[in-house]
Amino acid sequence: MPNTDVWTPLEIEPEGIGGPEELIERLVELGPERLSELLVQEKGLVFRGFDVSPERLDDVLGLLLPNRLAYVHGNSPRTKVGGNVYTSTEYPAEFTISMHNEMSYAHSWPTRLAFYCQVRPGGGGATPVVDAARWLRSLDDEVREAFADGVRYVQYLHDGFGLGKSWQDTFETTNREDVEVFLDGTGAEWEWKADGGIHVTMVRPATLKHPDTGAEVWFNQADQWHPAGLGDDTAAALAQILPADELPQNVTFADGSPIPEEYVTQIRDRGLQEAVDVDWEQGDVLLIDNVLLAHGRRPFTGDRRILVAMSD
């Protein structure tokens, strides 16, 4: 009998003339309400074979993402390339990026993401996606129970020179007052440091219930913010050069107690084990529900250029 427990995103391919024109026509015909219903139902949609060009990307994104958001308070290194369109990540090609829901550490997060393949990877470079409810179920009871009260995220954002992102890049401003107003609205605790950097602390839940389906999902980035998630050698090197309160990012349980390394590796590894790879062809577009699905990146060789945009 077939394994009905295997989930994959829905692939949508041309039926007629093909090209971005057909995709735009079909999205207009579908309409925003039905698109939202379909996305919640399928969790992820891959628009493949429409050969979307960079010149037509804005037209497609305008239909997929009704209200494109800036990547304010984002922690991943990205470059802005257009109207709230960014490179998906600039981490070195040889590294795997573990599974995560975009900005799950933040006070508010995008509800959907669109990825666009401008340049096909030379080899590898898939975007893995995982059902976040399945990820939650895959964890040991001990781990789920330990995170019941949430997590405490700690950021140190430098003033332009240091490891990680500066506060100027993170908040897309050079005005301290803009940063303070933004952070005050999120319930975060913050403190400017003598060296011009800022120390930010946020307590957030570890799981979330989807507003439409009610499904409870794993929704935090504890494994990405924990030094153990970087690997033993990198974590040890950082510990040698930086005190804990000057790490670009760190995480504890909500009460400030440390998260065991074995919890971190279990979370990271099981998310990747449960994931389904979306391999890229040039011009492909992937739309995901950012609560129902987490995403990552496989290592790659050669060129690869994936752009991302997000909306509420």
Rank of each mutant, 00 (worst) to 15 (best):
Pro66Ser: 12
Asp232Ala: 14
Phe171Val: 05
Leu208Ala: 03
Val276Tyr: 05
His73Ser: 12
Phe50Thr: 02
His107Ser: 14
Val119Glu: 10
Leu163Ser: 13
Pro66Val: 04
Gly214Tyr: 08
Asn220Arg: 05
Pro54Glu: 05
Val285His: 05
Glu191Asp: 13
Ser104Arg: 00
Trp218Ile: 11
Gly74Ala: 11
Leu242Arg: 06
Pro77Ile: 07
Arg297Ala: 03
Ala148Phe: 06
Val181Met: 09
Ala188Lys: 01
Asn75Gln: 13
Leu64His: 02
Thr89Tyr: 06
Arg152Lys: 14
Ala93Lys: 11
Leu113Trp: 06
Gly296Asn: 01
Trp135Ser: 03
Arg204Thr: 03
Asp140Arg: 15
Pro258Leu: 09
Phe182Leu: 12
Val40Asp: 03
Ser311Leu: 10
Leu61Asn: 02
Thr186Glu: 12
Val46Lys: 00
Pro92His: 11
Gly164Tyr: 03
Val60Glu: 02
Tyr156Lys: 08
Leu230Tyr: 08
Thr252Arg: 08
Thr170Val: 06
Gly271Ile: 00
Gln282Ala: 15
Lys209Asp: 06
Asn3Pro: 00
Asp131His: 10
Lys165Trp: 07
His210Phe: 10
Tyr105Pro: 05
Gly256Ile: 07
Pro77Val: 10
Ser88Val: 04
Ser104Ile: 01
Ser53Thr: 15
Trp218Lys: 06
Gly83Ala: 08
Ile12His: 08
Ser36Ile: 04
Gln224Gly: 08
Gln282Leu: 08
Glu145Trp: 04
Val154Leu: 12
Val181Arg: 15
Val60Pro: 00
Ile24Arg: 05
Ala254Pro: 02
Gly185Lys: 08
Pro227Ala: 11
Val40Pro: 02
Phe171Ile: 09
Thr127Pro: 01
Trp218Glu: 11
Glu42Trp: 04
Gln155Asn: 15
Ala215His: 07
Pro14His: 07
Pro32Asn: 08
Ala228Gln: 09
Gly18Tyr: 11
His226Ser: 07
Arg176Glu: 15
Pro243Ala: 12
Phe115Gly: 01
Met1Ile: 10
Phe161Leu: 12
Trp7Lys: 02
Leu230Met: 14
Ala206Lys: 02
Leu69Phe: 06
Arg305Gly: 01
His73Glu: 15
Glu11Asp: 14
Gly74Cys: 07
Ala236Cys: 10
Leu292Gln: 10
Arg152Trp: 01
Thr186Leu: 03
Thr201Asp: 09
Ser88Ala: 15
Ala126Gln: 11
His210Arg: 10
Val85Gln: 03
Asp184Asn: 14
Glu274Pro: 04
Gln118Leu: 14
His210Met: 10
Pro110Lys: 06
Arg152Pro: 02
His158Asp: 13
Glu33Pro: 00
Ala93Arg: 13
His199Glu: 12
Pro248Arg: 11
Pro32Thr: 14
Leu292Pro: 01
Pro110Tyr: 02
Gly125Phe: 01
Ile17Pro: 06
Asp131Gln: 07
Arg112Ser: 14
Asp232His: 15
Asp178Tyr: 04
Thr174Met: 09
Arg68Asn: 09
Ala239Trp: 09
Asp169His: 06
Thr265Val: 05
Arg34His: 10
